[in-house]
Amino acid sequence: MLDRMFSAEAVEQALWILRNEFPMAIWETVYVTVLATLFAIVLGLPLGVLLVAGEKNGVLPLPKPIMSVLNVVINLLRSVPFLILMILLIPLTRLIVGTSVGTVASIVPLVIAAFPFVARLVESSLREINPNIIEAAQSMGASPMQIICRVMLPESVPSLISNATIAITTVLGYSAMSGIVGGGGLGQIAINYGYYRYRYLVMLIAVILLIVIVQIFQSAGTFLAVRLDKRIKKK
């Protein structure tokens, strides 16, 4: 199989695809991932805040039924496998984007899959905060909104950045899956050439590129998280 994979013909074809299709695919993968993650954060961040602040002993206690519904919805969405979710969401995607196939359309299921995940990540970040700091802010006369915006979120920035990195790499993985239902990007190339046409070399290149992109996101995220962490002693 290896000699077939690296035959002159296969290599030549792979190089042709690399030149003509990969630049677009990389761009599609990156923008779908970044956009979907951003939308997921827009939805997930406030939900994650509510999960912590709305608790019985939180800074903004909410009625118990609301909290239960919130938790159940998040758990439900988190339990559906992404492949199934994409198919289930076809009507919604069509409603929002106008079509259920293509690169832009793949953003809808990605956001729906990612925002409950982001909410849970935000929740875990906010729970890391020392409750005494929140108490101190209360003792200074901070309102619940002030505590959320000026204490809880700023104090957990390093952790939020780390978790955003986890979110974006997870979304990247999901976006590759969306190639199956016509979403563009590296995932589509890997499936079309590798799975349907046995061009393993092309698939290999696509996978390597996905790994490189994950590496870049991860390194940037780690760098930012460390850079913004003022708890680490730096003279």
């Binding site: 020392n130 005494n132 700091i133 108490e135 101190a136 003792s139 200074m140 204490v151 700023p154 104090e155 920035v157 390093p158 913004l228 003022k230 708890r231």
Partner: peptide
């Protein structure tokens, strides 16, 4: 109020 653990905002 001041506290045993100081409770400053670390960021």
């Amino acid at each position: 109020m001041i506290f045993q653990g100081f409770n400053l905002l670390m960021q």
